[in-house]
Amino acid sequence: MTAQLPERLIFEGLEHAMCSNPLHDYFALGGPRPDFRHSSTACWRGYVGTWEVIEGRLYLIALTGRLNGGEQATIETVFPGYRERVFAHWVTGTVRLPQGKLLEYVHLGYASTYERDLLLQFRRGELIRRFVKENGRAKANAPVGYGIAASTTLGNSDVG
C-alpha cells in the first residue's frame, strides 16, 4: 500500500495533517459506508475528511471524495441530514498529528515518522488527554510536514 493522504484536523486554530481515520472506525462499528471511488493509490479509503476539535469535542466538518456513481461526496453522504458538522461520538482512542521535519520516509500507509507526534486521546468523541511524543531530531535539510512521495491516479481525483 502506498503512503496515504492524511485526514485534516483543525486544533486550537491550526490545521494539522492527521494520520488516523476516525470514519474508518465509524464504518467498522456498523455505520453504513457509501461506495467511495478509489481515486488514487494514495487514498484507498476514497475520501478525505476535515475534522475540528470544538470545545473539547471532535467534529467532522467537511468531506471530499467521489462515489462510484460519479456523485460528489459530502458529509451528508455519510450522515444524511447533517450538513455543517457531525459529532464523532464513536471515537475512542488516540489520533496522531505528525509535527516537525521528516525523520524517516516509509512509502506505506501512515508509517513515516516525524520529529514529533502530537497525540490526542479521545473517549467517546471527547478530548481527554494530549501528549507530545518526541521521535528524534531530523537532518537540517529534511522536509517539514507530512507528505507523500508518489501515487498513481486511478480516475478523476477529488481528494487531497
Binding site: L29, G30, G31, H89, W90
Partner: peptide, 23 residues
Amino acid sequence: VSDPLGGAPRLPFGHLNAAWHNF
C-alpha cells in the same frame, strides 16, 4: 448521545442508532 452543537441525534448510540436497532 447528546451534543450541544446538534452534531448527533439525541438517541442511544447517536449516529449508530440504526446499527443498534439492527442488533
